[in-house]
Amino acid sequence: MAVISSDNRGLRLAVRYAVLILIALIFVFPLVFMVMSSLKPSQQLLQDSANLRAFLPVGDISLNNYFAAFQRAPVATFVFNSVLVTGVTVLFSLLVCSAAGFAFVFVKWKGRETLLAILLATLILPFETIAIPMLLMVAHLPWLGVDGLTWGWLNSYRVQIIPFIADGLTVFLFVQYFKDLPGELIEAARVEGASWGQIYRKIVMPLSGPILATAAILKFLVMYNQYLWPLMVTQEEGYRPVMVGLQYFFQLNVAWGEVMAYLSLITVPVLAFYLYLQRAFIASIASTGVKG
């Protein structure tokens, strides 16, 4: 019986791995297709797309599409802009939204339930519905910079960063997470005379690794994939991000090889950020002992 049971376990394990590998392949294939296609001339790419050769480095393989992509568009500028805008927004978003979530959960003040409800209601508003009012607003906002007081935020990094620092979803994520933290910890700290700032910095944030990683990944993806807003507010090439830059490759005759090379290049920061935070996420769970 024991032998049969062991066989069944082995079989179950094999089936489970087979299913997992299949699911993994479904997610990996588009990436493999993208990278392999970026190494092929457009003509071959289109021919290979109908069969399994599309996923293999076969035929006329070279880095020519990458060189051509850099020649067609200022790829480095676009990637730099996106990384800068995304990085700064994510950083400030984590600070502001976690502080807001902290205030909503731990600090008792009048009207917080109402304000939280209003904030959550913004989740149902698609960005497109507020894009034009926002455009009209940022086009006339003042800014005090090295040139003194100027009016209008168009063609700048700030116009791509500041409107997206605070958002309902990220605050909501922090609120939900903070609600599950042991209230006794906060109460004990208050009894010991800790200020709200100290509790936020020294108790709540060190316990918030998982939610910080989750919020950062979600915010990163949203910001890195921004298209409509930067299209509306950046008329100068020097401020454009990667997704607007993608349009440079869609000419009358699309050079698909260059498109794939560009996509491969702009995917690198996303993967790097995700892999980095994935480790931080696991480390955070291990060090804080927070259990799901």
Partner: peptide
């Protein structure tokens, strides 16, 4: 000169017009 990708050009002009920022 400011060049725009063709696929995004019309939307950029309309947005520029709304923001009072046409060339």
């Amino acid at each position: 000169l400011q060049s725009f990708p063709q696929a995004a050009y019309n939307d950029s002009v309309v947005a520029g017009a709304l923001a009072g920022n046409l060339p």
